[in-house]
Design a protein around this nucleic acid. Sequence first.
DNA 1: AAGAACCTTTTAACGATTCTAAACTAACTT
DNA 2: AAGTTAGTTTAGAATCGTTAAAAGGTTCTT
Lengths: 140, 140
Amino acid sequence: MTETKSTRPYKKVLDRLRAAGLRPTRQRLALAKLLFEGGDRHVTAEILHGEAQAASIRVSLATVYNTLHQFTAADLLREIVVDSQRSYFDTNMSDHHHFFHEKTNQLMDIPGDEIVVAQMPPPPPGTVVKRVDIVVRLDE
Amino acid sequence: MTETKSTRPYKKVLDRLRAAGLRPTRQRLALAKLLFEGGDRHVTAEILHGEAQAASIRVSLATVYNTLHQFTAADLLREIVVDSQRSYFDTNMSDHHHFFHEKTNQLMDIPGDEIVVAQMPPPPPGTVVKRVDIVVRLDE
DNA sequence: AAGAACCTTTTAACGATTCTAAACTAACTT
DNA sequence: AAGTTAGTTTAGAATCGTTAAAAGGTTCTT
């Protein structure tokens, strides 16, 4: 049962990459493991790179950036815009929103069912709503 | 009536600066004029700097940045986070939200009364909601 | 008009991100 | 298994938006 985890530690993550059409390279596997086996996470490229180093995974920062973007394009991650100076990536792909504590740079998920948008204007002609992002900015 | 505009073109803007406790310098007056006399606007530092140049106002980019931040601190402007690589400033200080067209980098206001958030979770203990930002991302 | 406080400018620096070109590697072919 | 090829990674340089420091200029108060 947990056999899958111990005897084939990369199986799950490998399947995800294959399913996304991404070649399962050493570094993609390692980063995917860090990202997807720790529950819902919010990371910046710097943070993930730091974690990789800490885990003795040799990966360049450029590859971390590439990988985050490829994963995002493959719908394995979602980019969150809360800070105009830094990009955060979220492993939680379900419908949800965010609390953002500006002093501490902490991001927290708000489950989709805890925010209800009752009314919304139609998108301008010729456009389509891609996503609605709600950021509740916290203070104190 | 429109006399105010033609005979004392800086009167309105001057009063706003004074009210905010900002010295009405040449460049602040000029930038304020560009910002506040064109209806609701969304600008980046680059854009505003470009407009100033086009209007033959000699202002350095650093001053544009300083001014945008000072105006924001003085509640004459509001910073909007829609792009993790660029800061936008909004002259519309009323309660409202935004459409953001990612291909064209176009920002459009959504009046506050056109979006209704019916339900929202309480902020985590020890924090207070500073603002709720809703960005409707458009495509196509 | 003088002094003090404040503002603007230039230039250098910064952090985050992307680019480049070369080295590498996974996957396919034989 | 070796060779080929296309895709990937790398280090380092380059770029972008933004901020900082230092020097000089402006505005306000008197």
